[in-house]
Simulated assay, not measured.
Amino acid sequence: MDPKKPTAPWDRRLGAGEERKIFDHLPNHLYFVKNEKLQLISANRAFLDRCGYSEVEEIIGLTDRELFPLELAEKYRQDDLRVLESGQPLNGIIELFPNRIGDPEWFITDKIPLRDDHGAIIGLCGVVRSYERTRIELQPYLDLRGVVEYLKQHFAEPISMKDLASKLGISTRQLERRFRATFNTSPRQYTLKLRILKACELLAGTSMSVTEIALATGFYDHSAFSRRFRSTMNMTPADYRRRNSRYRRALKRPLQPEADSEDPRH
């Protein structure tokens, strides 16, 4: 094994259940792990709460039949078997799942197989989230989808906030407020970020001059572009191009011994 790759030693040092902690901080997401016998092995706090348990140790070894109504448990089991037998993920399952008071409610479930070091399937894990809550959370983004697509396609052109607002049938002030509430930035700042993102792509992937890139991404001149680029990326366009060029060259050449690595002063 390559001594520079820390995966195996790191995995052995990782405490049991550490990798699931992220799911304890994702609101409205239920996470679970089952072994090849479809017994629960792990779950996040939201899953435990939904099933009426306080500690993960209490659900280890239980099956869906011991937690949910029979008709729902059988549906979950059939989906689990499909994942285990096919070895393929099963995503976007829209199904009934008990809500906090035990009544069936529509949820979206994603399941993937889990394999051992030899590639054998030894279980599966899944994430369950409320369909209605997901729809509600996505709705602000969906409402502004037309505006965002317009900005993506026309970011290099002068953009009128008044014209954008009229596309939604709202005032400019309403557009600004809704856009900021959804994306945590204004339409103008979002457009500037799109311009800088495209500029990064052109600096890294083309031989266009900085002035040509400035004009191609909607800036008036080299100076205005460089100021905005530096404030966003904390480096000049030329510095970004040099760093990216070194990175691309490093990807193309074979790995060298550590003593032959690039001068650390750079």
Rank of each mutant, 00 (worst) to 15 (best):
L124T: 03
V127L: 15
V127C: 12
R129Q: 13
R129A: 08
R129N: 11
S130R: 04
Y131L: 10
R133D: 07
R133M: 11
T134C: 11
T134Y: 12
T134M: 14
T134G: 12
I136E: 14
E137V: 06
L138P: 00
Q139E: 13
Q139S: 13
Y141K: 09
Y141H: 13
L142D: 09
L142Q: 12
G146I: 06
G146W: 01
E149A: 15
K152R: 11
Q153I: 08
Q153W: 05
H154S: 09
E157F: 05
M161L: 08
M161Y: 03
D163R: 12
L164S: 04
S166N: 14
K167E: 15
K167H: 13
L168T: 03
G169N: 12
G169L: 11
I170L: 10
T172P: 02
R173F: 09
R173I: 09
Q174D: 11
L175P: 00
E176Y: 13
R178V: 08
R180G: 06
F183K: 01
T185P: 01
T185F: 08
T185L: 14
T185Q: 15
S186T: 08
P187W: 02
Q189L: 10
Y190Q: 04
K193H: 10
K193W: 06
L194R: 10
I196D: 00
A199E: 02
A199K: 02
C200R: 08
L203M: 13
L203Y: 04
L203K: 03
A204F: 04
T206R: 09
M208L: 15
V210S: 05
V210N: 07
T211I: 09
T211N: 15
I213W: 02
I213Q: 04
